[in-house]
């Protein structure tokens, strides 16, 4: 475990392999909820929280349940179930203890269950930090840290996009391109500029 490794994870998941602009995970919510900055930020915070927690939980499931029992092939089915029930639990807890917080991002929580970014990071962690069924040293910390960084990368893309689209509302754009198509073209240009970070690490 060293600082360099953490820095690599941070930079690569924020800029080089940004979840949205380069890995194409969580595109549906990215396009659907990035019309205004405020809901975009609320959604990003919800995603950040869920990805971080589910990275920790799925690491535990894989390490202590699936590997000892030789059931690695069940990872997809067990991860998605764990994520779905975890999201449900979070929703209930938030509704109980803080109705105002629930109003801010409660409606986005069910959407996160089918957000491919969450399952994607869980699978990615297992692919990256387990070699032949053995966890690498410090794999738990790396998994959780990668979860945080991917969540931050999602937030970054969301905020950039919603800022641009808020201004775009006042522009006169060709009618067939309005909304979805234009959002993708903007994302293409953003992705193009993020390509500048390629080759940061060799």
């Amino acid at each position: 475990m060293n600082i360099g490794q953490f820095l690599t994870i941070l930079i690569s998941s924020l800029f080089i392999y940004n979840v949205i602009l380069s890995r194409f995970l969580g595109l549906c919510s990215f396009v659907a909820i990035s019309k205004e900055t405020k809901p975009a930020l609320a959604m990003s915070m919800a995603v950040l929280f869920v990805i971080t927690m589910s990275s920790a939980i799925t690491w535990g499931i894989y390490r202590f349940l699936l590997i000892p029992l030789g059931l690695e092939y069940l990872r997809t089915i067990s991860f998605i179930l764990v994520i779905a029930s975890f999201v449900q639990l979070v929703e209930m807890v938030i509704r109980k203890i803080s109705p105002s917080l629930y109003r801010v991002f409660g409606i986005y929580l069910p959407l996160i269950t089918v957000n491919c970014a969450v399952l994607g990071v869980a699978v990615l962690n297992v692919d990256m930090f387990f070699v032949n069924g053995k966890p690498l040293a410090g794999s738990f910390i790396y998994s959780v840290f990668q979860g945080i960084c991917v969540g931050l990368g999602y937030t970054l893309a969301m905020l950039l996009m919603s800022g641009i689209r808020e201004r775009l509302d006042f522009c006169n754009v060709p009618k067939p391109l309005k909304d979805f198509p234009l959002a993708f073209i903007i994302a293409a240009i953003m992705s193009l500029s993020f390509m500048g970070f390629n080759g940061f690490f060799r």
């Binding site: 602009l21 380069s22 194409f24 391109l177 979805f180 198509p181 234009l182 959002a183 993708f184 073209i185 994302a187 293409a188 240009i189 992705s191 193009l192 390509m195």
Partner: peptide
Amino acid sequence: MPSGALLVIG
């Protein structure tokens, strides 16, 4: 590259 995909689908 990723940006080409976004452009084509847009």
